[in-house]
Design a protein around this nucleic acid. Sequence first.
DNA 1: ATGCCTTTGTGAACGCGTGCACAAAGATGG
DNA 2: CCATCTTTGTGCACGCGTTCACAAAGGCAT
Lengths: 230, 230
Amino acid sequence: MPTVSSEELAAAAGVNSAKLRKDFSYLGSYGTRGVGYDVEYLVYQISRELGLTQDWPVVIVGIGNLGAALAGYGGFASRGFRVAGLIDADRAMTGKQVAGLTVRHTDELEPLIKESGVSIGVIATPAGAAQAVCNRLVEAGVTSILNFAPTVLNVPEGVDVRKVDLSIELQILAFHEQRKAGEEAELREAEAAAAGQGGKPAADAVARPAARKKRTGQGPDGDVPAVMPA
Amino acid sequence: MPTVSSEELAAAAGVNSAKLRKDFSYLGSYGTRGVGYDVEYLVYQISRELGLTQDWPVVIVGIGNLGAALAGYGGFASRGFRVAGLIDADRAMTGKQVAGLTVRHTDELEPLIKESGVSIGVIATPAGAAQAVCNRLVEAGVTSILNFAPTVLNVPEGVDVRKVDLSIELQILAFHEQRKAGEEAELREAEAAAAGQGGKPAADAVARPAARKKRTGQGPDGDVPAVMPA
DNA sequence: ATGCCTTTGTGAACGCGTGCACAAAGATGG
DNA sequence: CCATCTTTGTGCACGCGTTCACAAAGGCAT
Ligand SMILES: NC(=O)c1ccc[n+]([C@@H]2O[C@H](COP(=O)([O-])OP(=O)(O)OC[C@H]3O[C@@H](n4cnc5c(N)ncnc54)[C@H](O)[C@@H]3O)[C@@H](O)[C@H]2O)c1
Ligand SMILES: NC(=O)c1ccc[n+]([C@@H]2O[C@H](COP(=O)([O-])OP(=O)(O)OC[C@H]3O[C@@H](n4cnc5c(N)ncnc54)[C@H](O)[C@@H]3O)[C@@H](O)[C@H]2O)c1
């Protein structure tokens, strides 16, 4: 397939074709009217604009369960990311081989970053250590951080942080799951209500559709509230 | 602190206070004018609306490096998620203990889901197996999936999928990283150009600021294009 | 060379989320 | 019981991203 139309690409990606064309136009990618986009050239343009044509050395800090899994993940190398080093504070870990790389002690963090020209750091330490590690990374010259610890990191301007919080991912799923269940329950309730009922909560349910199952007063069940705080 | 104002909360979260109040109003959470929100009641309301007051059994499929790390992750339990079972296709894994749980063979997937009432599944298998695993999960009654494999999953309507793609997270960081570097380089170029130059690419750079370093024609360097496809 | 047909690139309109600003509510003190 | 002061809840306007729709461009057949 030497060429594709915006229509085909849009269908494959599940987006609107106009949006796709406009997005392409931002990076100056010229297609050919009446034909479409040259696949090879397009891929090259997007790769380059996304920074995929260059090699990005990254450092992983905190080689526990997660850090070790990340170190051995093949999906990074194929996208141009190279693990330049593994760092852990635990002396017992130092010198160990993980995914073919030697784990180095935290003391070596700064020289490693400077020697390898690392600008992207991955934090996989416990939450308590994350901010301190972050500070050292930034101080040493790292300007992009991928954070797996469940903490909000404070960084100076110019430094980008992306946080991957798996609990939140699950929470979002659970939220929609509950919503699905709630809607079904509501349908059943509505049917039951139609059959014969005399209360007044129906008016409330209509007036405020987003607030399902609003407790009147303070929850009748006296269970402890806070599951929320991390 | 028995009560908080929307202003305080907004400052802490780094958002606009009006937005925060409006969001709260959607879930019918009543504050008290002139005082603020009762912390305990608010936490309870949000927890309940988010589905955090109930226990969610989850099943993890694919107990490799990543799956094992997830199985042992304490952050799930504290948010109300309980690992109901670990599933792997590898017979050599079956029966092994991982994070205090016994790994079960794929054959036991359906009974496990039905017995435990699992509605959330986590896929940590290789990309090639993900769609097949997904199909089986959905067939068995799972309606929410957290997918770590780098594949787009096709699911019937009513099933939610969230994808965690670590490579893309890194790519986003790399993109901004490149942009930062590009801006610096452009400043230097502009200075150099001001000093004394005779080309014409400057006009292009002004006309289309989003398209930095646009190659005229097809890149002079004959390097292979495609780093992009997964 | 000419006309037709396909597909791009983009101006204009639409819709939605965000932020502003203020009236209403309620607590608190006199 | 009334006045004052704080803070909520929300109508309204603004801005941005998305989508529509179409003129211009270019290939291709005749
Ligand atoms: N395991 C998961 O699936 C998972 C999922 C989501 C989030 N997380 C988060 O990722 C982080 C790591 O999880 P884990 O399961 O790998 O934990 P872990 O305890 O297995 O590993 C943490 C590692 O960090 C090292 N460490 C501690 N302090 C350090 C410091 N100051 N500098 C360098 N290294 C240090 C420890 O020696 C240990 O090897 C945690 O914050 C956790 O909440 C983990
Ligand atoms: N390791 C990481 O840090 C990381 C990061 C991002 C994404 N991922 C993705 O997560 C997935 C797992 O990564 P990993 O490093 O743990 O790989 P892995 O090879 O260590 O583990 C994969 C596991 O899945 C099992 N498996 C294979 N087919 C199966 C099937 N049909 N049913 C059930 N189990 C099956 C295998 O037996 C193996 O135990 C991959 O798709 C990978 O691309 C991994």
